[in-house]
């Protein structure tokens, strides 16, 4: 073999780049008044679970992957977890599951073989990455070319330092990896129904009555023109009654706007901070996870809900994460203590 497996620097190495893999955390807030968009993961719930499984805090940086994803080489042992989409991952050729912590040995290769479900897979590593924050966040802002790893997506030959260096010798001995025995129960990103609930937007009644009904009854198709900035939808064109034009106002992750041609766009993690198209609604926070796992050719339906329901769901989802965090942190501590 060439020098490939003889790196001196302890790190995660990229042997092959994926189409769009980037370092993200839960987003960069309090700079939107400067036009700096929050970015962050598309599926905060799944990313949080990956962090929980490896003993990190919820907003530690993770790598968000799209399929086809990067091929990674571990120069050092690490506790890792995958969450969100299932890309049929292997370590040195053997399958590893999503939503379960795995300790990988040094000189192992993590790769992804096919898209089994969903759209975005998260890789969390115990202790996080040795990178600098930009404006208090690790998230990559592709437009500003800042944050994350040099403000860009991950590419071949990148080396990302890891903060924690432990050998896990007793656990691994000469094994390539060990799958730990506990698994996170995931109850919030069930995409089967593809129903997305939202809080009604201020301009919804600008639609004529037929279009108002159609907004809630038809299935919308997610077009190929969909990415981290937003999903462009295709359905029967909606008709706006009002001749009013909107001046720009702040928008949000999940804001659904009608474009001049009557089609809809859902703003996603890399959305710009302000917009001036009529707002039909904003997807509730608890459904951001299922929304963030959609991809072109998926279909969705919209429904409205009220603030009470939406807020209760935020709390339920958060409580689930806290319970998971308590349980997983305890299991991991015990395991590492017993195998020290």
């Amino acid at each position: 073999m060439s020098g490939l497996f003889q790196s001196v620097k302890m790190s995660l190495k990229i042997l092959k780049a994926g189409i769009l893999d980037s370092i993200q955390d839960l987003g960069r807030f309090s700079y939107q008044h400067l036009g700096i968009n929050p970015t962050g993961v598309m599926d905060a719930y799944a990313a949080s679970i990956a962090n929980i499984l490896v003993g990190n805090k919820l907003n530690e940086a993770v790598i968000e992957m799209h399929f086809p994803a990067s091929v990674f080489l571990f120069d050092q042992p690490a506790i890792i977890a995958l969450s969100g989409a299932d890309f049929n991952a292997t370590v040195n050729g053997e399958s590893i599951p999503v939503y379960q912590p795995v300790i990988v040995n040094k000189s192992t290769v993590l790769q992804f073989h096919s898209l089994k479900n969903n759209a975005r897979c998260y890789l969390a590593i115990s202790g996080g990455f040795q990178i600098n924050k930009w404006l208090h966040s690790y998230s990559t802002n592709l437009k500003a070319e800042a944050g994350g790893l040099a403000g860009r997506k991950i590419k071949k030959d990148d080396e990302i330092g890891l903060k924690v260096k432990t050998d896990y010798k007793k656990i691994l001995s000469s094994d390539d990896f060990k799958i730990l025995s506990w698994k996170a129960n995931v109850i919030w990103n069930n995409n089967d129904s593809h129903e997305i609930l939202m809080i009604r937007g201020n301009e919804f009644d600008w639609l004529n009555s037929v279009s108002q009904k159609e907004f809630l009854s038809q299935s919308f198709f997610i077009t190929g023109n969909s990415d981290r900035m937003g999903y462009q939808l295709k359905g029967n064109a909606l008709q706006i009654n009002s001749k009013d034009e909107l001046v720009s106002t702040a928008v949000s992750f999940g804001t659904v706007q009608v474009l001049p041609d009557g089609q809809l766009i859902i703003l996603m993690a890399d959305h710009q901070t302000t917009g001036g198209y009529p707002r039909m609604g904003t997807v509730i926070t608890a459904h951001h996870s299922r929304l963030g796992q959609l991809k072109p050719a998926d279909t969705i339906r919209f429904g409205f809900t009220d603030q009470k329901t939406a807020e209760d769901l935020i709390i339920k989802q958060h409580q689930h994460l806290l319970q998971l965090q308590n349980a997983c942190t305890f299991r991991l501590q015990q395991f590492l203590y017993e195998n020290n």
Partner: peptide, 13 residues
Amino acid sequence: SLGDAALTIDFGN
């Protein structure tokens, strides 16, 4: 309201 985690004070369009 702007979703379930933001509100907008609108002083006229």
